[in-house]
Write a protein that binds this DNA or RNA. Structure first.
Lengths: 219, 219
DNA sequence: GACACTATGTCACTTAGTGACACAGCCGTC
DNA sequence: GACGGCTGTGTCACTAAGTGACATAGTGTC
């Protein structure tokens, strides 16, 4: 129960994020079970035990209820990338951090990850949901800007940095869609369980997408 | 007045696309002048001289009214890329085709291009519009899949192809945003008027984003 | 224990979007 | 050129997404 009342403003922030995630979980479950069009705001509210009005206080639209859970699907990788030290290669860092997370407490629930994959899958057929996934990718791109800017010792709004970040985010997205689709199709997960191999794959596509500018140790 | 009654089905298709574009023009103009929230379906309908019901027959939502005009912003490049012959380098092809289009009839109106840029700019602040822009980028990515698959003589759903396509589409998007923002800010357009230099820039970023796999002549 | 503040509930209301049906134009057939 | 089918549009009633305004319950501060 660490104090949440940080800094004068509102005591929420963290609390608010958790509530949004909780709503998002229920919404995503309903979207998956009965489709987006087949799910009403009232149903979501009832499922999470709040009034409909409160749902609209936390989300600007029905579809955006899916955003937090979709975002959860990318936080792990982003968290790991944020702590990428300059002296390490991308492969090394991903491998070390991802296997550490696999044994210690992982930052996100496995059920949430599955829900996120389901939403990404649904985005294929439900144009309303596509936005949520594309927003998450957008988020990835923003973060990549910061990360790459740091590595290259350039400003985050530098054109070169933005190009590398966009390309990286794009290939990460394709990999996520690829892996997500495979898992949902019930393919053998063994292909993705080898953290070292997976790290190398991610590192390789990012290296390629940035023309080799991102991946090696710097300094 | 070439016959439009192609193939038993409906005689529209082309006609329908033109109507959608016309509606999109008015919608985009209104969105720019008074914001998305400040523009009602009725207003769009009135501006284009149709009943509101008919607007919803052609567009699934208010925001999607912006899609055709935004899509117009990327068709030129895509049209050029579709005709990229195997024996030519990307630089050569872009330069030749873009300068040809500049003298001969360009495929899209300049006013439409400006409207498209304005919508992309609006997408920054209006989350509802972001979808339209992201959908256009998605479209670019799909097309890039086909183009790159053809070049690499691989299936379009090949993972490698999709990675290259996604990275290409992403950097094209950044370039478009960069140039669009510059033009709307009233920067000196001279920087973008040199077709040869522009072609080289686009070719360079695509080469980089694909790790050099796309750009050279093949065969 | 009174005060301030924020989150939530309730209810009336606006507006995006759909369904159903009627009508007008356009086409091919006889 | 009257007939019947087909397609696009208008009209109107209706559903549901989303907002504004106000009352109230929780929660921390003094």
């Amino acid at each position: 129960m660490t104090t949440e009342k940080r800094s004068g403003g509102s005591m929420s922030e963290h609390r608010r994020a958790r509530l949004r995630l909780e709503i998002s979980r229920e919404a995503a479950r309903l979207f998956w079970e009965q489709g987006v069009a087949g799910t009403s705001g009232d149903q979501i509210a009832q499922a999470v035990g709040l009034s409909t009005r409160t749902i609209w206080r936390h989300f600007r639209s029905k579809e955006s209820c899916a955003e937090p859970i979709v975002m959860q699907g990318v936080v792990t990788l982003l968290t790991v990338l944020r702590s990428w030290p300059r002296h390490r290669s991308l492969e090394e860092h991903l491998d070390a951090e991802l296997s550490r997370l696999r044994t210690e407490a992982p930052p996100v629930d496995l059920a949430d990850e599955m829900l996120a994959m389901k939403m990404i899958r649904l985005a294929d057929t439900e144009p309303a949901l596509r936005t949520a996934w594309l927003m998450a990718c957008e988020q990835t791109q923003q973060e990549m800007c910061a990360i790459i800017a740091g590595r290259l010792r350039r400003p985050a709004d530098d054109l070169e940095v933005r190009l590398h970040a966009a390309a990286s985010a794009a290939v990460i997205r394709v990999m996520d869609e690829h892996i997500g689709a495979a898992i949902l199709s019930g393919a053998d997960l063994t292909e993705f369980e080898d953290v070292t191999a997976l790290s190398r794959r991610y590192a390789r596509v990012i290296r390629t997408a940035t023309g080799g500018a991102v991946g090696d140790p710097v300094d």
